[in-house]
Design a protein around this nucleic acid. Structure first.
Length: 271
DNA sequence: CAGTGGGCCTGAGTGC
DNA sequence: TGCACTCAGGCCCACT
């Protein structure tokens, strides 16, 4: 589920409501990907100043630290004045005087990590190697090209790795490459300025459109307000192996790259 | 440094 | 209905 658009939609759905809240209690469920990194009591009394996003991480700025949240493969957040008693897959509750923020994550690849600040060692370990923010002004065709030339791996895997540009997960990587007319197997460093420019535009277009549609709900994604996304009705290649390309009618192909499935149109997307 | 493969977890779906 | 198996939206780490 949660690629950049889903994380951004989640952020937008509760950032304003939680801003200014004071933490009154913390409840931990089963262990997540990483430990919280502090005694839960250390969060009590702290104020939530705001919520930012970096790649697929949510950053809750606290009055005395930074709380990083990651949704992993199956995580979702809810924020409401009150929520039912925690279920078997509710592994982190942040109780505040504005409401309850709850991380629901069946597969537990997600995480809630407290760090002293963005420049602290634990924060830099998680955030330090992340690539460009695709919706920021600093994400230019030239910057993208500078990142891509250092990688000879297939462009699909380079996009997924997040070292050049963040937030493009498995669904959006296939969609982006379709829109850019680039075969997922093409070596990243083999892309010239013209194709890099097309790729740059496609990344922005797909991600921004997905945010506007409330994200992609394949199984159970919803915003912190419980709203499902709608972008899944607009995917052109993801999950459509064997079906006709919406642009040219050729059968969509699928292949496995780095143990992840990729989808592409063999006619519209050039090696 | 760059690239590859394993592993972390659970639930849904498929085929027998 | 039950079982074995495959697959799933992410990302760190060990190794080559």
């Amino acid at each position: 589920m949660p690629e950049l658009p889903e994380v951004e939609v989640t952020r937008q759905s509760f950032a304003a409501r939680i801003a200014g809240a004071h933490i009154t209690a913390v409840r931990l469920g089963k262990p997540l990907r990483w430990p919280l990194g502090c005694a839960p009591g250390q969060l009590l009394g702290q104020q939530v100043l705001g919520v930012r996003r970096r790649g697929k991480y949510l950053l809750l700025d606290l009055s005395d630290g930074l709380l990083l949240l990651h949704l992993g493969m199956s995580g979702s957040l809810r924020f409401a004045p009150a929520l039912p008693a925690p279920g078997a897959h509710d592994h982190f509750d942040l109780v505040t005087d504005h409401g309850l923020l709850r991380l629901h994550d069946p597969r537990r690849f997600g995480a809630a990590v407290f760090t002293p600040g963005e420049q602290s060692a634990p924060a830099r370990k998680l955030l330090g190697a992340l690539g460009l923010e695709p919706l920021d002004d600093g994400f230019t065709p030239a910057a993208l090209q500078a990142g891509l030339v250092r990688h000879r791996a297939p462009i699909k895997q380079v996009l997924l790795a997040g070292k050049v540009v963040v937030g493009v997960g498995n669904i959006y990587a296939s969609e982006v490459l379709f829109l850019a007319g680039i075969r997922p197997t093409t070596a990243a460093c083999a892309l010239g300025p013209v194709r890099v420019r097309r790729l740059h535009r496609a990344i922005r277009e797909v991600l921004a459109r997905a945010v506007a549609r409330g994200g992609t709900t394949l199984r159970d994604f919803s915003s912190a307000e419980g709203q499902a996304g709608h972008f899944q009705t607009e995917t052109r290649v993801y999950g459509r192996a064997g079906q006709p390309c919406t642009a040219c009618g050729a059968a969509i192909h699928s292949l496995v790259q780095g143990q992840r499935s990729s989808f592409y149109c063999p006619r519209c997307q050039r090696p």
